[in-house]
Design a protein around this nucleic acid. Structure first.
Length: 287
DNA sequence: CATGCGTGGGT
DNA sequence: TACCCAAGCAT
């Protein structure tokens, strides 16, 4: 028996009121929200999303702006390469799709920064098509409720088929099941401390029925330490450039990272990624 | 398939 | 305090 019906019923009364669930929210808004939600928590996304859509209400609006403006508006959401990719996606939508966010998964997948999750999320949430949508929340709910495993482990090809197997036939039911199971994973079946007392499928959860066995399988790789990392230095340099109206000199860059070897490596990476461009003897966000 | 890629809040 | 974790993607 599928976990979809009980979870969908629960969602009707318990789903959060989020901007991208408002009636009339555009496909472009959905695409922007999904980019921002790639590894950034909901509460941090909401204010940036609303600013973004006020400033660039359509893909063509963003495509007409310098990519550096997108990087600056991204602010401290993290992983600024997503801002660059979103700008590039807006250009592609404007040039190849007459300014309309594409409906079909292959066309969405062809956009920069769009992978399996985002492509299906847009096709389903913005356009109502029937596809399995698989994010880490859904993988965790399936791992527990269906497979009896406490953790989802690394993402795998099998995940899409697992979700397809519990997806209702009807288009509207399938859409609701995707949203509802994702929401369950986000607010009830959480990674750290699941609230099984509030779970609508507790009575059919294989993990709970087995007595919460410890996870034995392959784990998703743990992130490396952030303090002192190249990633931290990249972030410090980007924050400095975002805050400056004028190009930043090499000496000024050195103020955020005294270790020359690491500073040079981080800057070279940012230049290679196109997040920073060199002008004369200084650095700035791209045009 | 493993790794690198930001940032901030939770435990 | 040190992790852990968050609607992933590209290589």
């Amino acid at each position: 028996m599928s976990i979809a019906p009980a979870t969908s019923d629960w969602f009707e009364g318990n789903g959060r009121d989020l901007p991208w669930r408002r009636p009339g929210f555009t496909a472009w808004g959905t695409l922007v929200s999904e980019f921002m939600l790639q590894q950034t928590p909901v509460v941090r996304v909401i204010p940036r999303l609303e600013e973004w859509l006020d400033r660039w209400p359509t893909p063509a609006d963003l495509a007409a702006a310098p990519s550096g403006d997108a990087v600056r508006a991204w602010a401290s959401l993290g992983y600024p390469r997503r801002a660059l990719a979103l700008h590039a996606a807006a250009v592609a939508i404007t040039e190849r799709h007459v300014g309309v966010v594409p409906h079909d998964v292959p066309s969405l997948l062809a956009l920069p920064g769009v992978g399996d999750y985002t492509a299906r999320a847009v096709a389903v949430f913005a356009y109502g098509h029937r596809h399995p949508v698989v994010d880490v929340n859904i993988r965790r709910v399936i791992a527990r409720a269906v497979h009896g495993q406490g953790e989802p482990g690394p993402a795998a090809k099998r995940d899409l088929a697992d979700m397809e197997a519990i997806l209702p036939e009807s288009v509207t039911d399938a859409r609701r099941a995707n949203v509802a199971i994702m929401e369950l994973g986000a607010v009830v079946c959480t990674a750290r401390s699941p609230r099984c007392d509030a779970c609508p499928i507790a009575d059919q959860c294989a993990w709970r029925l087995a007595g919460y066995p410890a996870f034995e399988g392959k784990r998703a790789p743990v992130q490396k330490k952030f303090a002192g990392s190249d990633r931290q230095v990249r972030g410090l340099i980007m924050a400095e450039l975002r805050a400056s109206d004028v190009p930043v000199t090499a000496d000024e860059v050195a103020l955020v990272c005294a270790l020359e070897e690491q500073r040079v490596r981080a800057l070279a990476g940012l230049l290679a990624d196109g997040l920073v461009v060199a002008v004369d003897d200084a650095y700035q966000l791209p045009d």
